[in-house]
């Protein structure tokens, strides 16, 4: 599994203490054509940056996350029906929430994009629909212990596969899924968006939950 990494790792790079702290991928590659392994590096890079925000309140790390995700959050909100100024306000809010809730990000269960999506979605329900969103009991690792690095790696990898599988969907189905996540479909219309190519991501998350439950006892 590590062989993908070592190919692109610079020879002078010092051995990383943990997989997601490796310094090889300075700039995440986000080209549409990027293959799964390049995207995985982007994914683990985001994890590393969120950890830096969490542990060191690192503003450079935050800026790198911001430059990538803030425009996406804004576009997501505009496609969900917000006008430009409301989307700007909300996107700032969402990114500020990332800073303040960095300690609650669990990379053994979600990618950075997934986590940021959930913050943006909740903001949309709050601001656009003016509804309250009942949330399940939170399950977090707390200060100690942290999720296992190998499990984080596998989940992030699985997530990259999912992103690729979504890109490979027929255009019509992809549009339907997007419409569902932009909040454009009613609950009954969503029935047609089921049957998504989730792969084994559910099993990965299930394992992480089991481990988490075990540590919570």
């Amino acid at each position: 599994m590590l062989s993908d990494q070592s190919v692109i790792e610079k020879p002078d790079a010092s051995p990383p203490p943990q997989i997601y702290y490796e310094r090889a991928a300075k700039k995440p590659v986000v080209s549409r054509k990027a293959n799964v392994s390049t995207k995985m590096n982007a994914n683990t890079r985001w994890v590393e940056l969120i950890y830096l925000v969490r542990d060191a309140e690192d503003q450079n790390a935050f800026e790198e996350l911001f430059r990538h995700f803030a425009p996406r959050v804004k576009a997501f909100l505009m496609k969900s029906g917000a006008d430009a100024s409301m989307a700007e306000e909300c996107a700032q809010d969402v990114m500020a929430t990332l800073w303040r809730k960095a300690h609650m990000f669990d990379p053994s269960r979600a990618s950075a994009a997934t986590w940021i999506f959930t913050i943006a979605r909740n903001r949309r329900i709050d601001v656009l629909r003016k509804e309250r969103r009942p949330e399940p009991d939170e399950l977090t690792w707390g200060p100690e212990p942290e999720p296992d690095a190998a499990e984080v790696m596998e989940l992030q990898q699985e997530n990259s596969r999912l992103v690729q599988a979504m890109l490979d969907l027929p255009e019509k189905q992809r549009d339907l899924v997007r419409a569902a996540y932009f909040g454009e479909l009613s609950h009954s219309e969503i029935a047609e968006a089921t049957g998504l190519p989730l792969g084994t991501i559910k099993s990965r998350i299930r394992l992480a939950l089991e481990r988490l439950r075990h540590t919570m006892k």
């Binding site: 496609k79 994009a113 979605r121 998504l196």
Partner: peptide
Amino acid sequence: EAFEAVGGSVLEHATEGTNLSEVDF
């Protein structure tokens, strides 16, 4: 949470077909 991951992939590609609009850092 797997279905939320689909939301993450939608967010990742949310700027497709739009002008990338900067947010005030």
